[in-house]
């Protein structure tokens, strides 16, 4: 027990770094997925094509590789490379945000497909502008439809922060590994596992609460 307590400061420090990345990535990618989702459905073909290419690239390659390329690869581009040198943490935020935008965009697109077309007609006959219809009627319903899928991604995102390991940022797994190597003892990784479970327990509770908050009188 004393052994576990002795490693906690280092693990918690790593946890804070993981949570920081989690929070930044979430706060940026959740809203930014929406404009990309709208481009995926754009009537203007080049925009739609561009959005599809973007989603394709970021969904079909491993996040870890994207992370490595943004951190190690971008600075090597001749000419503009030196301006693209980011510190590890910021490179990680960029990679995570770009990657998760692609996933959220697809989830939102599925949500938009799920909103009944007749809702647009109701807005139209009531004289709402396109923008008013989108923001007051369509997006809230889309978000409600997407919520379970979004929740899934949010929980995955928390675990994906362990990929920072690849660029040697001192997050939870990185620090746990350091302790394992130092003491030749696996306990630190087990403690890290418990920390992930505790964090995701709270996340799950919050996400479930959000779902019932947006149930709008329907039985879930």
């Amino acid at each position: 027990m004393d052994y576990i307590i002795s490693m906690l400061p280092m693990l918690l420090e790593g946890t804070v770094t993981s949570l920081k990345l989690f929070a930044f990535a979430l706060v940026l990618s959740i809203p930014l997925g929406l404009p990309v989702a709208l481009q995926l459905r754009s009537r203007f073909r080049p925009l739609r094509w561009l959005a599809n290419v973007y989603v394709y690239i970021f969904r079909s390659t491993p996040l870890m590789l994207q992370l490595v390329i943004i951190y190690f690869g971008l600075p090597r581009i001749p000419g503009i490379g030196p301006y693209l040198l980011l510190d590890r943490f910021h490179a990680a935020i960029l990679a995570f945000v770009l990657n998760y935008i692609a996933y959220f965009a697809e989830i939102y697109r599925s949500g938009l497909l799920g909103v009944n077309r007749s809702q647009f007609e109701a807005c139209q006959v009531l004289g709402l502008s396109h923008w008013q219809a989108q923001t007051r009627v369509i997006f809230p319903q889309m978000f409600r439809i997407c919520l379970p899928s979004v929740a899934n991604e949010v929980i995955t995102l928390l675990k994906d922060t362990s990929l920072l390991y690849a660029v040697s940022v001192a997050e939870l797994i990185h620090n746990a590994e350091a302790i394992v190597n130092r003491d030749a003892n696996m306990t630190a990784l087990m403690v890290a596992l418990v920390i992930y479970m505790i964090l995701n327990f709270f996340l799950t509770v919050i996400l479930k609460h959000l779902e019932s908050r947006f149930s709008w009188g329907k039985n879930l």
Partner: peptide, 26 residues
């Protein structure tokens, strides 16, 4: 004014909001 077969109320709003929001927004 138009009334649809499938009602087309806004499910994300209370009855009150369904009535007042278009009035205010327009």
């Amino acid at each position: 004014g138009m009334v649809f077969q499938a009602y087309n109320l806004f499910p994300n709003m209370t009855v009150k909001k369904n009535l007042t929001l278009p009035f205010i927004l327009t």
